[in-house]
Amino acid sequence: MITAGIDMGAKNIKVVLLEDGKKIRARAQELGGTDTRGATEKAFNAALFQAGLKMADVSHVTSTGAGRANAPYAQDNVTEVGAAARGAVFVHPATRTVIDIGAEEGKTLRCDAAGKVIDFAVNEKCAAGAGSFMESMARALEVKLEQLGPLAMKSTNSIPMNAQCAVFAESEVVTLVHQKHSKEDIARAVHDAIADRITSMVRKVGFENDVVLIGGVAKNPAFVETMKRNLETDVLVLEEPEYVGALGAALVAAENAGVK
């Protein structure tokens, strides 16, 4: 039986096709933009093409993400927190803590071996800890987003940056640039600041090994390094981290369709 999970994220729509609740058949994503319905269709069709399947082959569709209530094709939905837990435990069964940093929201959760959520926290008003902040920092330093992490890894000097308030942080970066600090050191300061905010959130819920990282920002090596340092434990980046939410939704779809 084929089920599908659609993650209607704030920025990107992700689709995962799953066979018998076990085997991943396809993964596809599309920029949400202003026509999210069109983007979802595109992503869904791309996934079907990848797997060599037709729409009629899909038995059950579950959505997740910020826009899950309005997802086309979906028969039901599961919250991002629930989907993240299920997907992470599927990919890495020893997962007990998931840190999910997306474009607009950062969240952390603790779960049990079955992927059931025990407690969770989402970044609150006063926190600069999400992907869009990374993007604006990359702009301030005039580098591409993908270059930000590698740049930070080259730094040999840590400069304290507060970043309690995203606006304050941006003006701090401007100050650091004028003080002629190197781009590498500033990039590292930005990562440290964001990691601090995320770490604060993680400490609120507490963490238990294994700790895994999902969501777009997980692909940033400097961020991962800093989190390992802060938590003083290993932090694993799951394969295809930005698809874990959609995968979790596909697993829930399988459950809802009666797959054991």
Binding site: A66, V78, T79, E80, V81, G82, K116, V117, I118, D119, F120, V122, K125
Partner: peptide
């Protein structure tokens, strides 16, 4: 201005799920 209804509902959804 400091209350986000959508986010809060989403939080409640997640909590009810747990």
């Amino acid at each position: 201005r400091e209350f986000d209804m959508t986010r809060t509902m989403s939080r409640i959804d997640s909590f009810m799920e747990t």
